[in-house]
Design a protein around this nucleic acid. Sequence first.
DNA 1: ACCGAAACTGAAAATGATTATCATTTTCAT
DNA 2: ATGAAAATGATAATCATTTTCAGTTTCGGT
Lengths: 147, 147
Amino acid sequence: MKYAKEEAVFEKYISSGKLKQSKQRKNIMQAFLESGKHVTAEELYNAVKRKFPSVGLITVYRTLKLFCKCGLAREVCFENGTARYEHLYGRQHHDHLICSACGKVIEIEDPDIEKLQDRQYKMHGFVPQGHRMDLYGICRKCRMCQR
Amino acid sequence: MKYAKEEAVFEKYISSGKLKQSKQRKNIMQAFLESGKHVTAEELYNAVKRKFPSVGLITVYRTLKLFCKCGLAREVCFENGTARYEHLYGRQHHDHLICSACGKVIEIEDPDIEKLQDRQYKMHGFVPQGHRMDLYGICRKCRMCQR
DNA sequence: ACCGAAACTGAAAATGATTATCATTTTCAT
DNA sequence: ATGAAAATGATAATCATTTTCAGTTTCGGT
């Protein structure tokens, strides 16, 4: 029961709507919780298929949308036109520092920036919901190798 | 010659590569420079077509990519899978405050946040290239109307 | 445990945005 | 003016994602 809390969140969401449980959803959830920082629908599909070959890509898409609705995940899209899903629950919120050359993504946290973001929300009369911040640059290694 | 500087940037880029000028590119550029904050390729296509019905959507796509390469524009994608192009030249850099309910986008600037971002770049040994920050929330108006 | 309505699934087809192909036209240095 | 190189635009292709729909599963009420 490693992910009891996450499962509870999902089950609460399921029962609050008129939704139903299914083994597919359980399998997809398990694979998602074990996955790394930012998964593609397709990547998650491949991970699930290793253990449960019967699930379909379509169901993975649908289930990821559910995760977003219940607050377990968030959809973010980096450069190319493919959506990635990020964990929202049980992991620290973080921003991204991305190397434009090699594509490496470093997760960063900065409480001071968060404070200033809150200031912006207040100034404009917004209720904060969440944010994303991606810093693009060139990492040390790529800078050394010239190209 | 309202946009002389922007045109100069583009021409410099054109001549530095082995590229060529064309009336389509001029027309698309004009429409882009007159456009609002964040245009879709399709929106720009429609704007251009009003004055120059002969240009094709494909050329608009290609030309927008050129604008990105020469530093006049930047591609950003918000929620849905459609890319939007943002002015990079001759306009202040800005971040986004987005209402999740009505979709309104407010442009914000905060020098203090920029400073902290630079600190992050330094801490990780990155050379800064640019960033994007999107703050999601609910605006005052949407909060009032309950839904 | 059984039943049936409602929800879920997965395959195939549809969609929407973007890109590749290619024959034709345009640009530009000579 | 000429010709090579690049640009254009129509069509077709691609890629990620969504819709459709017939068959399957879930679950509350019996």
